[in-house]
Design a binder for these strands. Structure first.
Length: 448
DNA sequence: TCTGGGGTCCTAGGACCC
DNA sequence: TCTGGGGTCCTAGGACCC
């Protein structure tokens, strides 16, 4: 049997931990730049607010309906969910974190008859220790467990834990479940299934395996198996990422190369940090760049390029430099850019680097690793972006004026500091209650 | 004014081999 | 005039997930 433990409306619940006054208020959390709704409280869902709706179209409705919106505060969500996960981990024989707000547990070896109360107790423990409500679904396959957790959320009577442990329960659960809601059935395949007369999970489970094979691809065949109680989604252990991406939409359109270069440098530097954190190196660096697709009145441009590194690396200098080369290759003057990103892939372990016969210089490699290690340490202690590469700084806008003027007649211009967070908007962000000394709440005393 | 970010796996088709 | 058959590997794009 598997259990899935899933935080209810995760980001909203994180915000509510320190804002109990909002327990019954409709609350939403927005994406970067306060762009879209990414999390909704049940009250907000009832108002018809859908995930992915753009905030600027909802503002009026929000003020009328007294909906409270937060900018996303990932530092807070990462910390709260980490606490939740450590409790779940200590409560089950095996644990595998699936996403920021979900974890699977393999319950083999646990007392079968106790699963329901195990789940209820786990909910209580997590709630008491962290303030985060979780729902628990337990079933013979992960797809069925997901379905069970959905029922645990939907019906109060389950006390946050639903168990599917016999054929009758499985049938009933499948019958009441729309095919579109099944894990692994997305917006492309769902309409095709409807066309074939498959409307519920039960309908699919009753077709023959051959029928599924004939009409659909391998992933749906696996879903079919899972619905029929055949376990086939692998138990994934911790695995290093195969690709790492850092990208952002900009708060405003950007026309100037130097500004985009500054941001691309930051994205590349962040990718390098992530590589070092998981003990990896990458052999390919790529970037992508695009204008705002929603602005039909503006000229559109979309491009990407990649660069193979002769020796795989996680050096900030090497990866930033490759990313800027890529940027130069795709850059076109005259467009207003809205989004860019850096992706590193062809990832392998930093312990066994395949060096290049002609390119590899062990001395340079050693120095860069040491430098990166020191920078990582400083930034960990003093906060992100305390030390950055020069290319992550924006030269002052008068750089070109200065070179045009007689050298030395002007004082050198200050370098404009542009941090990662300046590039995006987050006007409605909550404090970092649990990760910054300055943001810790004080209780039981007043200012005066 | 204003529309997110980060991943994985599968597959068809092209390039290449003998 | 006329040009095979059988394979592998790589890659871009699609579909899905949270």
């Amino acid at each position: 049997m598997y259990a899935i433990v899933d935080c209810d409306n995760c980001y909203v619940s994180c915000e509510r931990v320190f804002r109990p006054d909002l327990r019954t208020t409709p609350v939403v959390v927005l994406s970067n730049n306060d762009g879209c709704v990414v999390a909704r409280s049940n009250e907000a869902k009832k108002l018809g607010i859908k995930a992915g709706m753009p905030y600027f179209k909802l503002r009026e409705q929000f003020s009328e309906s007294q909906v409270v919106a937060f900018s996303s505060n990932y530092e807070l969500y990462a910390d709260i969910t980490q606490r939740v996960m450590s409790i779940v981990k200590s409560s089950a024989p095996t644990f595998y974190r699936y996403s920021i707000d979900e974890a699977f547990c393999d319950l083999s070896g646990m007392d079968y008859t106790d699963l329901k109360s195990w789940g209820e107790q786990l909910h209580e423990k997590v709630m008491r220790s962290t303030g985060m409500p979780v729902s628990i679904g337990i079933a013979p396959t992960k797809t069925l467990a997901k379905m069970a957790s959905h029922y645990a959320k939907k019906y109060k009577g389950y006390k946050h834990c639903c168990v599917i442990d016999d054929e009758q329960k499985r049938h009933r659960a499948l019958e009441l479940y729309e095919i579109d809601e099944v894990w692994g059935v997305g917006r492309r395949v769902a309409p095709q299934l409807h066309q074939q007369g498959v409307h519920t999970a039960y309908d699919l489970s009753c077709r023959s395996r051959d029928w599924v094979k004939r009409h659909f691809a391998l992933p749906l065949e696996r879903t079919w198996c899972e619905l029929n109680g055949i376990d086939c989604v692998p138990n994934e252990e911790y695995a290093p990422k195969k690709s790492i991406c850092t990208s952002r939409s900009f708060a405003h359109n950007i026309k100037h190369f130097d500004e985009v270069r500054t941001l691309v440098s930051k994205f590349a530097a962040r990718c390098s940090e992530k590589l070092r954190k998981q003990g990896s190196v990458a052999a390919t660096v790529s970037i992508f760049l695009s204008t705002n697709h929603f602005r039909e009145d503006l000229a559109q441009y979309d491009n990407s390029s990649k660069k193979l590194l002769l020796t795989p690396t996680n050096s900030t200098q090497a990866i930033v430099s490759a990313a800027i080369d890529c940027l130069r290759a795709v850059w076109r003057e005259g467009y207003e850019y809205k989004r860019a990103g850096v992706i590193v892939y062809d990832i392998s372990s930093a312990d066994s680097i395949q060096t290049d016969l002609f390119d590899y210089d062990s001395e340079v490699y050693r120095k860069r690793s040491e430098l990166d290690a020191v920078i990582d340490k400083i930034n960990k202690i003093n906060g992100a972006e305390t030390v950055v590469l020069a290319s992550e700084q924006l030269r002052s806008e008068s750089e070109s004026d200065r070179s045009a003027n007689t050298a030395g007649t002007k004082k050198s211009e200050p370098i404009k500091t542009l941090t990662f967070k300046d590039a995006i908007r987050h006007d409605l962000r909550s404090p970092n209650y649990t990760t910054r000394w300055s943001d810790i709440l004080s209780v039981g005393q007043t200012e005066d």
